[in-house]
Design a protein around this nucleic acid. Structure first.
Lengths: 337, 337
DNA sequence: ATTGGCTACGAAAAGGTTTTCGTAGAATAA
DNA sequence: TTATTCTACGAAAACCTTTTCGTAGCCAAT
């Protein structure tokens, strides 16, 4: 154990603990010579400050938390990458929590964070987060919080999102322009505002092109892959009213659709066209290549973290609530040709 | 801020701080009635213990660190998922560090961890980690450490790996059996033991089938995607001595190879067959579907974390050094048909 | 000659929890 | 009755760092 602490350093140097501390923090109260001696000895004895003593005293953990539904997910992996980059640059540590799309986990995690373990929190909600009392409760402690992508609708909190309504609209219109008449929508959640917005875009695009929305074509999926495969398979196996286009609001549902189409020999894009929200790096290598709405996931992470640090660093926290909206891009590929 | 601490609780209850502390920790010294009163008041005042004071006093952070090269990588994302699962189950927090394949970052991170911020460390080395002095230094502090997948060769430390030699051998033999005569090997690092092992398998498979190893077909890639694309393109564009098979030791190099083949109109698998280490969930949906050696990434994470917790919990840390080896599976698909 | 200011440092408190060591009172044993 | 043992709690130290408040000595200004 690296057992050198200020006390031992001070003894070795014939100084007081406080002087050593000040020297190490480069205080003006300490002479240049003494500072040099202290630094040298600290180096020699491999002094590492005790982070807990420091945090206890300064009421600052130099740590932020990120709470996301899952990590084996291209979007969140990229977002975390962006977050980590900013955190590292700021010299902050990053505590990572996964809710696995389970509200209980989210609640427990948020409650834990009330203890003051971190200086700020980045959150993307899980699919079945309906009540937000835990978030409100955390917010009331005064800790800086930023939501990204999956944000709560009813809270007055800074958020970083993408243009979900427009993206949903464009994606649907893109399928309509490609000739689709019956477009299904695959959704992951009833509660999330991103789902609402994406689906509102879907609805409005249908309306604009005078296509009646068929509720049977709006599929509520969940986090159980088997179940989703069955739902999709049932829909695509139907003799009549089989859709000729699919708008998947999340990547994994597009993947599932590909599997189902392979399974039941449905030709993409001849028999059914697909477009999906996705950050898959291999989208263009799929068979057929997948048309995507691609969110700037890395930038979302970067922006969220930057915003959070602005809040952390600003003593007088601004009364203006930041709502940053980035743009996704629609990339046409063969699945919707 | 949740400003209730033991002191305030004690005042409110007319008890001493120590009694409240003991009551909350369910000490035998406190009567059942008093405990009930304390718990009720703690609940009422929304008491959250200060983690830093606790850590400082108990010399225990209830936190582990995981140090990985990158997170936007299917293997590491899955491994982290496994790690997080075990950590959460144990009630531990997870500090995540990304080195971005940069040795300087790895060094700095490891040095930071010497401060005692965590109770244990999980590490997968970055591609250019040659010197291990920083790891030795951390190890000397006595902190439990477990390496996974990318492990150092010269250290006496617990590791969790896969059967890399056998996998490299099988992959190469698979290509040979598919008719390949000139098999290239794409490697990411000169230093990592997993690369050495995978390539030794490659060499031995060639040897077994009396194929001479052509050093020009062993490509050292790096972390620069452009560069890798060029290296691969150059090799595949050659008039003579163009390989008819490719063994990619990491997923991203297989992806790059797919892009190059698309670019220069080289037909997979007719003109060139490919097999790669990969945890891509869409491997079977690629065009053509990609033959893979798939590591049990999630299990690697789970095993590593479990092993680490055994070390953390065992006061008398065992003198036996665990070296866990899991099996990868070779999945034949169309890219090597 | 007094005051004020500066430099360079030290003593001590504060931060919140855990743990060790008491101890007062009651109950039991001798 | 006296000695011993529990029971239930409190005082205080310890964990290590940071920060506030001194202060001794020296120089410059009034």
């Amino acid at each position: 154990m690296s057992n050198t602490n200020l006390k031992k350093l001070a003894e070795e140097l014939g100084l007081s603990i406080s002087s050593v501390s000040k020297a190490l923090r480069d205080s003006y109260e300490i002479s240049a010579e003494t500072k040099k001696r202290v630094l040298a000895m600290a180096e020699k004895m491999n002094y590492q400050p005790n982070p807990f003593a420091s945090s206890l005293r300064r009421k600052k953990s130099v740590t932020i938390a990120v709470v996301i539904p899952e990590i084996a997910n291209n979007f969140f992996a990229l977002a975390l990458d962006g977050i980590q980059m900013v955190a590292q640059q700021k010299g902050y540590h990053l505590l990572t929590y996964l809710t696995h799309e389970d509200y209980k986990n989210e609640e427990a995690t948020i409650r834990h964070l009330q203890g003051g373990r971190v200086d700020g929190v980045l959150i993307s909600l899980c699919r079945d987060t309906e009540s937000i009392h835990h978030l409100v409760s955390l917010h009331e402690t005064g800790i800086p919080m930023v939501f990204f992508d999956r944000v709560p609708e009813q809270m007055d909190c800074p958020t970083v999102t993408t243009d979900d309504y427009e993206s949903g609209f464009k994606a649907t219109e893109h399928l309509i322009n490609a000739g689709c008449k019956k477009i299904a929508c695959l959704s992951l959640s009833n509660y999330l505002s991103i789902t609402h917005k994406r689906m509102k875009g879907y609805e409005d695009a249908l309306k604009k092109h005078a296509i009646k929305l068929d509720p049977k074509l709006v599929i509520q999926c969940n986090n159980d892959n088997e179940n989703n495969l069955n739902l999709i398979k049932n829909m695509l196996s139907a003799k009549k009213d089989r859709p000729d286009g699919i708008f998947a609001t999340v990547e994994k549902l597009a993947i599932s659709t590909y599997y189902v189409c392979n399974d039941i020999k449905l030709k993409i894009p001849q028999q059914i066209k697909i477009i999906s929200f996705s950050n898959l790096r291999t989208a263009s290598l799929l068979s057929p290549s997948l048309s995507t709405i691609t969110q700037p996931a890395f930038e979302i992470g970067k922006e969220s973290a930057s915003l959070l640090f602005r809040m952390i660093e600003k003593k007088t926290f601004g009364n203006r609530i930041d709502k940053i909206v980035l743009k996704s891009s629609l990339i046409e590929r063969n699945s919707s040709k």
